[in-house]
């Protein structure tokens, strides 16, 4: 009996020492998961998630300190992608998704105060003090961060117009009868 106890204890002690050594020897630094999350985020830097930019939100997610449904520009697609990456349960978005828009500065009202320029996270507004400001449409991420600071409320968000270049083929309306079932089982392979 005593022999059995001692043998097991010795074995356990040996493996404990081995594990203790391994824990020190093979420690991994850094947090690559945050990079992966950051790559999924839309990089609007809009701050609507409550974090100052996309990277901080990614880091918070990586630490498990945040919900995955905070990114409004990413929408439901992002929630599903994050749920997939982080192995979490998908959660519905708080608010409906917005239509993609860009900021537009009313030229007549702009007083050239540069506050919107300071607010823009991606330098998509050009202009100088006391000069008319203008939005570079192709750079604007639609984050709306410039709308609030404008003292004369001359910035509006305008939906991006559909044109031939931007047009997408619609998802077929003629669905097979079992259209509501999700991805088929056969695809699991």
């Amino acid at each position: 009996m005593l022999v059995a106890i001692l043998a097991i204890a010795a074995l356990a002690a040996f493996f404990g020492i081995l594990l203790g050594y391994s824990a020190i020897r093979f420690r991994v630094e850094g947090d690559p998961i945050a990079d992966q999350i950051d790559a999924l985020l839309p990089q609007t830097q809009c701050g609507q998630c409550g974090h100052p930019g996309c990277r901080p939100y990614a880091e918070a997610l990586a630490k498990g300190e945040e919900e995955i449904n905070k990114c409004l520009p990413g929408g439901e697609a992002l929630v599903l992608a994050l749920a997939d990456l982080l192995g979490r349960e998908p959660v519905a978005m708080d608010i409906k998704e917005k239509i993609p828009s860009v900021a537009f500065i009313e030229p007549e009202d702009c007083i050239g105060c540069t506050r919107c320029i300071q607010a823009c996270p991606v330098d998509a507004i050009i202009g100088a003090a006391k000069q008319l400001h203008a939005v570079i449409n192709s750079e604007c991420t639609g984050c709306e961060l410039c709308v609030e600071p404008c003292p004369v409320a001359c910035i509006q968000m305008r939906p991006i117009q559909e044109d031939i270049q931007r047009w997408r083929w619609p998802y077929p309306a003629r669905q097979p009868v079992e259209s509501d079932s999700a991805a088929p089982l056969r695809d699991a392979a």
Partner: peptide, 9 residues
């Protein structure tokens, strides 16, 4: 239960 014709494995 698998979704009808076409979905049964």
């Amino acid at each position: 239960l698998y979704g009808g014709l076409g979905y049964n494995p």
